[in-house]
C-alpha cells in the first residue's frame, strides 16, 4: 500500500442493508420510511440513511484492503445527493498520505451512483495494527 494506490468496490444499497439498518438502529424517520413524506420534501422516494454508506466504508476498510490488521482512526463524509433503494454505488478510495512514524494511511474517497454522479465524498484515516 502506497500513496496514489486506488481501490474501487461496488455496493448495492438494497433491502437487506436497509432492513438491517432499521432493525439495528431503529431510525424510522419518515424521510427513510414514508415515500409520501419524502416526495413532499422533494425526493423521488424514501431516502436511504446516510450512515449506510459508512457501513460500506467499514466493509471496504475491513475486507477490501490487502491487509487485515487495520483500524479506522478518523472518518468524515459529506453527502451530496440522496441514495435510493437498490441504487448501485461505485466506491473509490485513493491513498493520499502515509505516515510511517505511526503506521497511518490517509484516504480520500467518494461514492458515485450509476449515473456517474458523486453522492458522497470524504476522508478516512486508518492505522495498521502492530
Amino acid at each position: 500500500m502506497q500513496q496514489g494506490d486506488t481501490y474501487t468496490h461496488r455496493f448495492t444499497a438494497g433491502n437487506a442493508v436497509y432492513d438491517g439498518f432499521i432493525s439495528t438502529f431503529k431510525d424510522t424517520n419518515p424521510l427513510h420510511t414514508d415515500a409520501a413524506f419524502a416526495q413532499a420534501k422533494g425526493f423521488k422516494d424514501v431516502v436511504l440513511h446516510g450512515n449506510i454508506l459508512n457501513g460500506f466504508i467499514s466493509y471496504f476498510v475491513g475486507m477490501c484492503l490487502p491487509v487485515k490488521n487495520v483500524m479506522i482512526q478518523t472518518q468524515s463524509i459529506k453527502y451530496a445527493l440522496p441514495v435510493y433503494m437498490n441504487d448501485e454505488l461505485e466506491f473509490t478510495a485513493e491513498i493520499t498520505g502515509f505516515f510511517e512514524s505511526v503506521n497511518t494511511y490517509e484516504f480520500k474517497f467518494f461514492f458515485k451512483n450509476k449515473e456517474g454522479k458523486k453522492v458522497a465524498k470524504g476522508e478516512l484515516q486508518i492505522g495498521l495494527l502492530k
Binding site: Q73, T74, F99, S101, V102, T104, E106, Q125, G127
Partner: peptide, 8 residues
Amino acid sequence: LNHIQLIV
C-alpha cells in the same frame, strides 16, 4: 490514539 493524531 490521540498520540497518533498529534503526530499526523
